[in-house]
């Protein structure tokens, strides 16, 4: 075992892991973080805490992660390279580890163009792959990126994202190979609606043996309405929602669409459970955390293993 991460233990035991996410509030409102945490407690192995997602200012991932940790949950610290240079990132990793946070996700982050501060300068001192390398060096060599020794090095279980649906598609497996070579331990994918395309990607992943070098958690997001399905299809960069999925949502009367979205999500999980190399699921119920227990239960993923 490389770390004390519960997520690592669940995966190493061969269980299908379950993670979900908590978007911190747009204000100094700890109650909101705790409320979301309460909804997820007992149903997931780790809770992703997003880092100024969609480039909108929120409570920091570290701050909200500490609140969840104090509740006894296992926060998964997301970190984007957009907002901090390597000094700030490394110091934040030390802070996180000092608060018992031992699992993180290395990301480049949404461009400020999409957020509410499009006038901000992006940092991008390093990119997501270089961030993986840096966290691994801190853990395995006990050194900062600059070379100096760390007292009590942070032992982070290192995650990253993968989008099997973005262009150029033929490069997507190689991009994962690069993250594996950089030292990633687990991957959470973009939301999967186009299952065939995901399976094609997974075939490429298996051909390179990458599924044996990192754990791949398939990303799913229940849709609340046909409108949301259309929005994700047309407006969200790198998202692949097939027409058939939109049509299936739209075929239901408005008041039944949310339930249809949940059904699609559960069917997706059940089908992907059969795909060789899928090690678990990342359920991103955006501002809909209360639906997660139902999804986890109906997908047959309860009870969560006790590995501590």
């Amino acid at each position: 075992m490389k770390t004390n991460s519960i997520l690592e233990k669940v995966l190493a035991n061969g269980n299908l892991a379950v993670t979900s996410e908590c978007g911190p509030p747009r204000g100094a409102v700890p109650e909101k973080v705790k409320e979301k945490g309460q909804l997820l407690a007992g149903f997931v192995d780790a809770v992703n805490v997003t880092d100024n997602q969609t480039a909108m200012v929120r409570m920091s991932s570290l701050g909200a992660s500490i609140l969840l940790r104090q509740m006894g949950l296992n926060p998964l610290l997301q970190m984007v390279t957009r907002d901090r240079n390597r000094l700030a990132m490394q110091s934040e990793i030390l802070s996180a580890y000092a608060h018992g946070i031992d699992t993180m996700l290395c990301l480049s982050g949404d461009h400020p163009h999409f957020g509410d501060h499009p006038m901000a300068a992006s940092v991008h001192d390093i990119d997501s792959i270089q961030l993986i390398q840096m966290v691994k060096t801190m853990r395995d060599e006990g050194r900062f990126q600059g070379g100096a020794e760390i007292e009590n090095p942070p032992k982070m279980f290192i995650g990253a994202a993968a989008n099997p649906f973005a262009d150029p598609f033929e490069l997507r497996v190689m991009r994962l190979a690069k993250k594996v070579a950089a030292g990633v331990d687990f991957i959470q994918t973009q939301c999967i609606y186009n299952i065939e395309k995901f399976e094609t990607w997974m075939e490429g992943v298996r051909n390179r043996g990458l599924h044996e070098k990192c754990y791949i958690l398939a990303g799913v997001t229940p849709m609340k309405s046909a409108g949301m399905a259309r929005y994700m299809k047309n407006k969200v960069p790198g998202m692949d929602v097939p027409d058939a999925v939109v049509a299936r949502m739209a075929a239901k009367p408005k008041e039944e669409q949310a339930q249809e979205g949940v059904d699609i999500c559960i069917e997706t999980i059940q089908r992907l459970s059969q795909v060789k190399g899928v090690a678990g699921f990342h359920i991103m119920a955006i501002e809909w955390e209360k639906i997660v227990p139902q999804i986890v239960e109906r997908a047959g993923l309860l009870p969560r293993p006790q590995v501590a």
Partner: peptide, 13 residues
Amino acid sequence: SKQLMNGPCGGST
């Protein structure tokens, strides 16, 4: 746009 040195982000379309 993100000065990425190791490949395209998930937003390339």
